[in-house]
Structures are given as structure tokens and as C-alpha cells.
Design a protein around this nucleic acid. Structure first.
Lengths: 122, 122
DNA sequence: GGCGAAATGATACTCGATTCTCAGTTATCT
DNA sequence: AGATAACTGAGAATCGAGTATCATTTCGCC
């Protein structure tokens, strides 16, 4: 098995995903390649430092990562498989919810439910 | 100090809060009353079991709790003090974001920024 | 091929959140 | 008051996520 190219493997795997992945999730997708968990964490950390990755926090704790070149979007979180899917599009009317004196700097919208494959299986 | 009424103390404190509180946050508000952290956890757990409390997960991990009798609402999470504030009102157009084959069962909207008091202090 | 620097895998370790344990306390019922 | 069961506080134990360590391997360059 080759080494010293594992960071690329990690980044490539993330680029092919349909949503942000956690370190563990990514690691399990790489099982069989011999990549260690520590390497996954290191690659993610470096990716963020170098500006090519972005860390995302959704509900339920745990940080997920995705390529930074994606436009503004939100997520669909499957309550069965716990996978997060990218959703393109956004919503309006958020500003009206903000109380006086509060500074709004960002927002996160997470839709919850069952994804395609988990719904089929049920 | 009286005991055997600590669960009430916990529930009352939660009812007076302006947003969902984490176990720690709640505990620190009760410092001085002699309530132990384990008791806070127990009271929260019982509250959820008995249907009077609801657990809420926002960004950044950590579960928070609030009385279940509140109407549908969302949150403003202050990035400085990490406190979550209830926001009444909701947004539209969420359904249009859901991909085919996905079942939507709920949603969570979190506004990020700086709250009143943290903004003043800056 | 030989070398020093960077990368890697396995695993020990740290840290925070939550749960468990247990002895002492308080409530309830008589 | 007495017996018993529920409740409580303090701290130990557990659990998972993420980080640090270290010997080994690979890279880039000569």
C-alpha cells in the first residue's frame, strides 16, 4: 500500500461525497486502504488550515468537513443513518426573527427526516 | 438547605430561562443552592420521561433542555457566551429544498451571532 | 543508493460530558 | 418516634471524540 499520499485520498473522498462527512464517517469509507484514523484527522486539519476544507457543525455534536468551494447551502440530516446531505437553496425571512440588539452573522438550517435509501429500506 | 425538592428547583429554573439550557448551564445557575450536578442530570432525565421537558440539540454538540409547552420556535446562538435564546416565528419554503424520495419530519433553524449583552460589552 | 525531512499507522492519552455508586438525608405513612 | 422508600451530593467510573507520541516508511534531492 502506498503512503504519503493519504492526504490526497482523504480530500478526494470528501470531494466525491454528497454532503459533509465526519472524521469517523470518512475513515470508514477509507477502510481497506489502510489509512489510519489519525491521518484522517491530520488531513482534515491541514485541509482547513490551507483553506480547502471547511468544518461544519450540525445537530447532535460532531464536526463534519466538506470542500470549501461549495456555494451557500444547508443540510438534510437523516435520522436513521445519520448522514448529512447537501441541499442547495436557502430560505428568507430570517432577519425578522432577530431580537433588537442582536447581531446576526450567520445561520444554519437543518432539515430532519429519512433519506432516500433509509426510507426504501423501511 | 432543604432537599427532596431539588427537582422542582431545577424545573422552575428552566421555566424562567429565556432559552434552552444545558445541564452545566443550569447547574451554574443553581450554584449556591447546593444542588449537585448529578441531581440536575437526574431531574432533567425525569422531566423528559414525564413529558414536561424536551431535549434540544443545537450546533456544537451538547444537549439543552426546555419546557415542552412552548410553541414551535427556533434559536439564536450567541457565539460569544454560547447561550441559546428562544426566537418565536418560523420560516417558509423548506419543503422545496427536500430532494425526491426524502421524508421530511422536522427542521431546525439556528441563527448565529452576538447577543445583546455580549454585543454591548464589545 | 544514501540522507534528512515530512508523512503515516497504531495506540496511548487527554478531556469533557454523562452516568453510576453509595452512604447519608428527608419524606411518608403508621 | 419508627420503619421504609425515595431523593440527594460527592466523587468515582465510563464513554467517545480528538490529540500526542513514536517507531517506521516514503518523499525529494543529491
Amino acid at each position: 500500500m502506498q503512503r504519503a499520499k493519504q492526504q490526497l485520498t482523504v480530500l478526494r473522498s470528501l470531494a466525491e461525497a454528497d454532503g459533509p462527512l465526519s472524521a469517523r464517517e470518512l475513515w470508514s469509507r477509507l477502510s481497506g486502504t489502510g489509512v489510519g484514523l489519525a491521518t484522517v484527522y491530520r488531513a482534515l486539519q491541514r485541509g482547513v488550515e490551507e483553506g480547502m476544507l471547511e468544518s461544519v457543525e450540525l445537530l447532535g455534536g460532531g464536526v463534519r468537513y466538506e470542500p470549501k468551494d461549495r456555494e451557500h447551502h444547508h443540510y438534510f440530516l437523516c435520522s436513521t443513518c445519520d448522514h448529512a446531505f447537501d441541499l442547495y437553496g436557502c430560505v428568507d425571512g430570517l432577519e425578522s426573527l432577530v431580537p433588537d440588539g442582536f447581531q446576526l452573522t450567520g445561520h444554519e438550517v437543518v432539515l430532519l427526516g429519512t433519506c432516500d435509501s433509509c426510507g426504501d429500506a423501511a
